[in-house]
Nucleic acid binder design. Structure first.
Lengths: 342, 342
DNA sequence: GCGAAAAATGCACTCGTGTGCATATATGTG
DNA sequence: CACATATATGCACACGAGTGCATTTTTCGC
């Protein structure tokens, strides 16, 4: 019994069982070509396939048709709660199309991005979904040069002419600010994410523009090097050292917001008593913390699924113009924001 | 320039350029076989490969050698915060070995497991890491039957003779109970996870055994169908309806614990004032909720990385005896547990 | 400088699917 | 029933890389 190493059945095995040529089996199993085969044979083939536990050898199919039925996904860190829902969106759509998804974590490090990209190229992926884009991104350049279809998700690049599914950042920032203004705040700070990412830079830009629109001072601004709690804490500490008199913070995302809350409480300021804090993205569980975080929720799953649909259109050669989809975020008001008391 | 569709160069192109047979090129590029080829030719081949921008066609190689340099991972739901760290552990080890990881979500549904498994078989994965095992698991059976190397992670199956990296559940449950006993609790309930999973069943078994050891009543026990907040809430509600006088709950995992807290508070019982709650796994962010959850922390990343190392040993034919590694969990005491007040 | 052993390379076939083209069988029409 | 026309199936080769074996070339000992 040991090491029986049962060989996987092939279409030839099915062909022998049914008593037809393997090419007939190949056609019977292909939805496109099935109509060329008599219904009786199709049924027999399907039964035999079932009985033998046949699974197609994708490598062979990929070789013959010069398609891999695989797409690659570049993600900064799967451990960051924003990404798993996006990945689910990607996988659900991709697998429904018979595609395999290859995910790699890059930790936002150029070297890891490169090596992950090489690995995926070696696997002849038919397209890429890139969640790691910086405003000036070498991987995006390389995809363009090599003619590999790709779609950016969540973050985009500086230049135009690419496919991307992102959040309407301007809308989100305005919603957050409208909320704070409505509560009577006017001295509002912003802790931006990394400025070499579109999410970091454009939220900052929107913040400054909308503050200006309301004739408010937009000088309480700091930025972080990464979208992490620690960076948020440090940036908020810098802000506090500057000794400003702000009563609210719009944070670059939820993790940064948590850092802000840590720093504020360490400095003896209560949230939302002394300072209100708005986060971004709406990662799970933060509704259960105290104070429950007010945040700009983004449609993570949809971003993933839509990006993937676009990618498939692009792979299938439906070459429409480069498409940028901006999904609407929504403000979730919880307990980390309250009336200004000065 | 449009649609130039440059065909990828093959070893035959290299062969023509250098003026040798393509089999020579194949050998020159294979570290194992390179010694059979004259150094001069090897150099020429490498230069030509470089010049043409040759990348091997993995599909062809996989087909011929029946090796894919890919491993499959079956996970219930990447969106559940326990899994991302495990996946990082897996990916970091696998990619360091030049392997690609293919992840699929099964939602603990037999049909999705089957189709994901088929897809991976089609890709000729060389091994599997299975985080979805139930005590009686058809996928595990199929791996065994087909001689596919595999390692279970987090959950294991009923039978012995398999590779697995799991948590020392007994130790964890005892630590939780010792903690509660030390706080003066004696009427302790348990909301188990699904009893067809090892984590659900063995935590329950350990609970009952340890309670018995202390001559305590272990009848306040309910179980859930899934490891979710909603299921935890429902199970705890059932427990409350039974009208028992318990002062503490050991929950099957953190999500179930959250459900318990919801149900308790809905019933007007405070945590930890009236009832203490201990969770399991230690998923991120729960240290920030109020009350911060006391939980049994498990080494997630290590489980993933160790499982992968074992898998590679198994793939490489280092056939040691089936290996079960039990990693030590640790109790993290936070605010959801307190002294018994009756 | 001859012969044998060793090293280098070529040949031909394999892996499992897919597909254009040829052939065989069924269907329809007058 | 003959003949044209669909319809169904078989045949053979392609895809790119890898490998056992045969063949050629080199090396080396005497």
């Amino acid at each position: 019994m040991a090491g029986a190493q049962k060989k996987k059945p092939t279409i030839r095995d099915i062909a022998n069982l049914v008593g037809v040529h393997h090419s007939t089996v190949s056609r019977a199993l292909d939805a496109e070509q099935r109509r060329k085969i008599s219904p009786k044979v199709v049924r027999q083939v399907e039964n035999a396939a079932q009985k033998l536990g046949y699974t197609p050898n994708i490598a062979a199919s990929a070789l013959r048709r010069n398609r891999s039925f695989a797409v690659g996904v570049l993600v900064p860190d799967i451990t960051n709660p924003v990404f798993p829902p996006i990945l689910r969106g990607i996988q659900d759509v991709a697998e429904a199309q018979g595609y395999t998804v290859i995910i790699s974590n890059t930790d936002d490090a150029a070297m890891k991005e490169q090596s992950a990209f090489r690995m995926m190229q070696g696997r002849a992926i038919e397209g890429m979904i890139i969640a790691t884009a910086r405003l000036d991104d070498p991987i995006v350049e390389e995809c363009k040069r090599n003619g590999i279809p790709f779609v950016l998700v969540n973050r985009t690049v500086g230049e135009t002419g690419v496919n991307a599914v992102v959040v309407d950042e301007d809308f989100g920032v305005r919603a957050a600010l409208d909320h704070l203004l409505g509560l009577g705040h006017s001295k509002i700070a912003h802790i931006a994410g990394p400025l070499d990412t579109s999410t970091g830079a454009s939220r900052k830009r929107s913040f400054e523009a909308y503050m200006k629109l309301h004739d408010l001072d937009a000088t309480f601004v700091e930025s972080t090097k990464k979208f992490t709690v620690e960076e948020g804490r440090a940036a908020c500490a810098r802000l506090l050292e500057r000794g400003g008199e702000f009563t609210a913070i719009v944070a670059g995302n939820d993790l940064i917001a948590l850092g802000c809350i840590d720093a504020l409480e360490a400095a003896g300021r209560s949230v939302p008593g002394d300072v209100s804090v708005v986060g971004g993205n709406d990662i799970p569980m933060l509704s259960r913390m105290v104070p429950a975080l007010t945040t700009v929720k983004i449609p993570k799953y949809e971003m993933g699924s839509q990006a993937t649909s676009i990618l498939f259109d692009s792979i299938d050669g439906k070459d429409r113009d480069p498409l940028v989809i901006r999904l609407q975020p929504s403000l979730i008001v919880r307990d980390s924001t309250g009336p200004a008391n000065r």
